[in-house]
Amino acid sequence: MKLPLTRSSRALYVTLVASLAFCAAAKLATPARAAAPEKFVIMVGGINKLIYLPARLAEQLGYFEAEGLDVELLSEPTGIDGENEMLAGAVQGVVGFYDHTIDLQARGKEVKTIVVLGQVPGEVQMVAAKSADSIRSMADVRGKTLGVTGLGSSTSFLTQYLAQRAGVPASQYTLLPVGAGNSFITAIRQGRIHAGMTTEPTVTQLLKSGDATVLVDMRNVDGTRAALGGTYPASSLYVQSTWLDAHPQEAAKLARAFVKTLRYMHTHSAEEIAAQMPKEDIGIDRALYVSALRASLPMYTVDGRMPADGPQTVLKVLSAFNPAVKGRHIDLSRTFTNRFVDDVKP
């Protein structure tokens, strides 16, 4: 049996129905909230190394955020560590040396560089002050222990090539992984290595302290061509080809952020660039950092493009000693693309 509605209960009923209708209409009228950007994790092979500075600078300048990207930068001591993290799916991209894309193709892995940051390695073969009299060229490294960041790293690739080019086979010297930065400096000072390959700002630190001298300088184009016979594209952003095929829009945004960063670097002084960097990257000696950065600026590309003679030079270096690459057919066109950087407007 229905109970009769009183005046008060009828009014309450009408109010309730109106409220529900209003809420439903309001929900329909509210625009959908934009989905948060997908997180993109980049592993950097030593985030405080100047060869990889564009990654940190892009973050500091807000260029990733301006492109609507949620980018997290992680750091590993060597490029080989970043490569392994990417292949395991822990990160989506690596800022490391381009030569890994060739090495990986030889091992059946498809990886592609989408932005070239350094047209030269930025690496320097240093000789401990105590060994300077006995090591005057790479031909003198027989019986010596040579420091590299890690076995299988780009420093080990380059060290082996320089020694081989000087007529010294790998069986006549020892490669010792000593990392970079302070660990490299310690290895020099303790006499654990007679010479070793490292980058800025470690180079300037060793020169300032007098603990080491320069043997081979690949911080500029002329020095690199003299050492390796051509331009050697080095630091770059590379990703797995399967990821690139599925995320062309994200790749385009990353390319824009990095190219804008490279343009900034070529239109600002070392002092102005350093002013953008976090204190933990600069360290306690700001003047030393600025000096090292000034010496490094010639290594960076202006537009992120692959140098025309670069891939062939890198392949020549790796084919000389790397058993995975030597004698193998490598399709260099699958190791890089200028597609995304070419689309960045001036």
Results as ranks from 00 to 15, higher is better:
residue 210 G to D: 09
residue 217 D to H: 08
residue 226 A to M: 11
residue 244 L to N: 07
residue 238 Y to R: 00
residue 218 M to D: 00
residue 231 T to S: 12
residue 204 T to I: 13
residue 206 L to A: 10
residue 229 G to Y: 05
residue 221 V to A: 02
residue 217 D to I: 08
residue 236 S to A: 10
residue 226 A to I: 01
residue 221 V to I: 07
residue 232 Y to L: 01
residue 212 A to I: 14
residue 221 V to S: 09
residue 240 Q to G: 11
residue 221 V to L: 03
residue 206 L to P: 01
residue 221 V to M: 01
residue 231 T to C: 05
residue 210 G to H: 02
residue 209 S to V: 06
residue 223 G to Y: 14
residue 219 R to E: 14
residue 245 D to Y: 14
residue 226 A to Y: 09
residue 227 A to E: 00
residue 228 L to I: 07
residue 238 Y to L: 04
residue 222 D to Y: 01
residue 242 T to D: 15
residue 224 T to L: 00
residue 222 D to L: 01
residue 218 M to F: 11
residue 234 A to M: 08
residue 214 V to I: 15
residue 213 T to K: 07
residue 211 D to A: 05
residue 224 T to K: 04
residue 229 G to R: 05
residue 207 L to V: 10
residue 211 D to Y: 08
residue 217 D to P: 07
residue 233 P to W: 08
residue 236 S to R: 01
residue 245 D to C: 05
residue 245 D to T: 06
residue 241 S to M: 03
residue 225 R to K: 03
residue 235 S to Q: 10
residue 211 D to W: 04
residue 216 V to Y: 15
residue 214 V to Q: 13
residue 237 L to T: 00
residue 215 L to R: 08
residue 242 T to G: 03
residue 204 T to K: 10
residue 213 T to G: 15
residue 232 Y to R: 02
residue 204 T to Y: 10
residue 218 M to P: 04
residue 226 A to F: 01
residue 210 G to I: 08
residue 203 V to I: 14
residue 206 L to Y: 02
residue 223 G to D: 06
residue 207 L to Q: 13
residue 225 R to P: 10
residue 235 S to C: 14
residue 216 V to T: 15
residue 206 L to E: 15
residue 219 R to M: 15
residue 204 T to E: 11
residue 237 L to K: 05
residue 242 T to W: 12
residue 228 L to G: 07
residue 245 D to R: 12
residue 209 S to C: 09
